[in-house]
Every structure is written in structure tokens, then in C-alpha cells.
Amino acid sequence: MRAMKDLRRNFVREFWRGLAIVWPIVSLLLIFMALLGWVVGIREGWPLGDGLYFSFVTGLTIGYGDLVPKDGLARSLAVVIGMAGIVMTGLIVAVGVHALRKALEDQGIH
């Protein structure tokens, strides 16, 4: 039981350490996605909140479908938002995998 607690603690420590390294990239992607969502919202005549909501629902590849851009440029920007979200998600997953691998290594589990 103690080993599992240490493993979780090591994982969390390594995850935050890795996130601190990639945070500048992740934060730029978040800002980029928010700005594109703002532009899409302007093009579609949506309030700012709806543009941001659309951006992050699209970027996280959830895509509820309650807001759908009709304008050609807005649709193109939605594709870019989706690709930026995939990159951001990939970075965070990579940090998690690295943290788990390091935590397991520290426990002597390979």
C-alpha cells in the first residue's frame, strides 16, 4: 500500500515538473485557440463567450454541434483550432506518459 502511495506521489511530482517545461507552449496554444475562437465568433456574429466556448469544444475535439460556423473562413479557422487542440492534448498526454514511466522507474518497476 505504501508503494502505491509513493508511486502516485512520484507521478504527480513528475507530471507537474513536465508540465512546467511545456507550459510556455501549452499557454501559447491556449491563447492562439482563444484568439481564433474570438475571430470565429466575430465572423459568425456570436457573443465572445460563445466564440471561446466553440474554440475549446472544437480544440478538445468534443464538438457538441450546438454552434456551427457557416462562414467559409470561420470553418477554416475551426480546422486550425482543432489541429492546435490535438497538438496541445498530445503534449499533455506525452507529459503524463513520461511522468508515469519515471515514477515506475523510481519504484524499480520497468
Rank of each mutant, 00 (worst) to 15 (best):
A3D: 15
L7T: 09
R8H: 11
R9Y: 04
N10H: 11
N10A: 14
F11S: 07
F11T: 10
F11V: 07
V12D: 14
V12T: 13
R13C: 09
E14Q: 12
E14C: 05
R17M: 09
R17A: 14
R17S: 14
L19M: 15
A20R: 12
I21E: 11
V22T: 12
V22R: 02
W23I: 07
W23P: 00
W23D: 05
W23T: 13
P24F: 04
V26C: 10
L28A: 12
L28Y: 06
L29W: 05
L29S: 04
L29A: 10
I31V: 15
I31L: 15
F32I: 01
F32M: 06
F32S: 10
M33Q: 15
M33N: 13
L35W: 09
L35R: 04
G37W: 12
G37A: 12
W38C: 05
V40L: 08
V40G: 06
V40D: 06
I42Q: 08
R43V: 07
E44C: 06
W46E: 09
W46I: 08
P47V: 04
L48Y: 10
L48D: 00
L48M: 10
D50S: 08
D50L: 05
D50F: 00
Y53T: 06
S55R: 00
F56C: 02
F56R: 04
V57T: 13
T61S: 15
I62L: 15
D66N: 14
L67Y: 11
V68W: 04
K70H: 09
K70L: 09
D71M: 02
G72R: 09
G72C: 00
L73F: 11
A74Y: 07
R75W: 02
R75C: 01
S76D: 11
S76Y: 03
L77D: 03
L77S: 06
L77Q: 02
A78I: 02
A78T: 07
V79F: 09
V79Q: 00
V79P: 02
V79H: 02
V79C: 01
V79Y: 10
V80N: 02
V80R: 00
V80G: 00
I81Y: 11
G82S: 09
A84M: 05
G85N: 10
G85V: 08
I86Q: 01
I86E: 01
V87M: 05
V87K: 01
T89P: 00
L91S: 06
L91H: 02
L91Y: 04
I92S: 03
V93G: 01
A94L: 13
V95K: 04
V95M: 03
G96R: 03
G96F: 05
V97P: 01
H98V: 08
A99S: 13
A99K: 05
L100T: 10
A103K: 05
L104E: 10
L104H: 07
L104S: 09
E105K: 14
E105P: 02
E105H: 12
E105L: 13
D106Q: 14
Q107G: 04
G108K: 11
I109F: 12
H110R: 13
H110E: 12
